[in-house]
Design a protein around this nucleic acid. Structure first.
Lengths: 202, 202
DNA sequence: TTCGCCATGTTAGCACCGTAAACATAGACG
DNA sequence: CGTCTATGTTTACGGTGCTAACATGGCGAA
């Protein structure tokens, strides 16, 4: 067993979770803990000190792995983007091509948002998405999938400008519905989602 | 001049803006200052102490007029709601009835959001809108106007359920577009707004 | 007018936050 | 074995929202 696939075996990571001075894989643990908290509350309510405490490490240890709080949030947004992309993939796979797939994407979008409200909101926040820093980062993977899928699906017989507008219309209605439901302005009713998305434009 | 209309003349309010112990109209001043700051930054970045400092009063004076920070934010959201309602009124007045008025509402919605991004976001946030506490409050006036106008406009020859769905579709697309542009995910282009809203459903 | 109430301010102090600086530990590698 | 360096720790600073206790001063009743 010379060099088999024990790829990341930095001193056995979390095995023997004693009180070693060096954690083993703090960065992952912090992200994990962050994700757990984003299942229960908004990113604004996420405190570095609290996360560190939960992981069992001093508050400032976080700074060995993230230059500041924003950086941790960016990492979490990246995970969110990946998860959203996965959701899209399975949604697309389960639907047959054409308009069916199109609707599937829309529903997947809203469902992802409703099932991961805080993760979704974090990912969509200007701080995460804006700026060239976000270009090509994992957190944009979901968005990239969405737009490219919409491009394919929304019919190729239109000029690219019209196509672009159709795409934006689709994105708007889906995003708007998700936001309205997320913010409690509209009841997050399953049937309502179907009804609203069923007869949508495009 | 027995009892003429000097309605609110509490020691001349802001006349002689000296360093009197009692401010005269602190509450209004705080709201004013809050609004000023919401023109330049998000509600999350609004600090009570800073607002108090700007108004020239101690940090804790705020608590004589608002039980906590949320309360001040609620007051600001109320102003936002009123302003949005006004925007709708003028938009409706300028448009002739029918589909024209309908489009006018949509554009007014997006424009209001883009011109008052932080106020809009504050107003729409769950903390402001959710709960029965918000029912009938000024901050919901904009929303109320919107939905009632949409009801009237979206044609009366549909069942109320279908009507409801149409209304929600309209709201979704308009809200979604506003949010995407607000969050920088889509360029806030004037022409783009027209294009997206022009051929919308309903 | 004088007294005292009380709305409206104040200062002091608490617990929390993000973060910088300096120090401690221990694994890796010469 | 010795030292370098990645990764932890403690300490400290200035900021926050908020509570408690005290100060001011305008207004109505005695």
């Amino acid at each position: 067993m010379a060099k088999n696939d024990n790829s990341v075996n930095i001193e056995n990571a979390k095995a023997a979770e004693g009180e070693r001075y060096h954690h083993g894989d703090l960065r992952s643990a912090l992200v994990e803990e962050g994700l757990k908290r984003l299942q229960q509350g908004p990113a604004e309510a996420l405190s570095l000190r609290e996360v560190a405490r939960s992981v069992g490490v001093s508050a400032t240890a976080v700074y060995r792995h993230f230059p500041d709080k924003q950086a941790l949030l960016h990492a979490l947004a990246d995970v969110a983007g990946d998860r959203m992309a996965s959701a899209f993939e399975t949604a697309m796979a389960a639907a047959k091509p054409g308009k069916d797939a199109f609707d599937a994407m829309g529903r997947a979008y809203v469902h992802f948002a409703l099932k991961n409200p805080f993760l979704f909101k974090l990912m969509m926040s200007p701080e995460m998405m804006s700026g060239i820093a976000a270009e090509g980062r994992p957190r944009t993977r979901g968005m990239a999938m969405l737009t490219s899928a919409l491009s394919e699906l929304s019919g190729g017989k239109m000029s690219s400008e019209v196509q672009n507008i159709r795409r934006l219309q689709a994105w708007s209605i889906v995003h708007g519905l998700a936001m309205l439901m997320l913010d409690g302005l509209v009841p997050a009713d399953e049937k309502l989602i179907d009804d609203v998305l069923a007869s949508k434009i495009v």
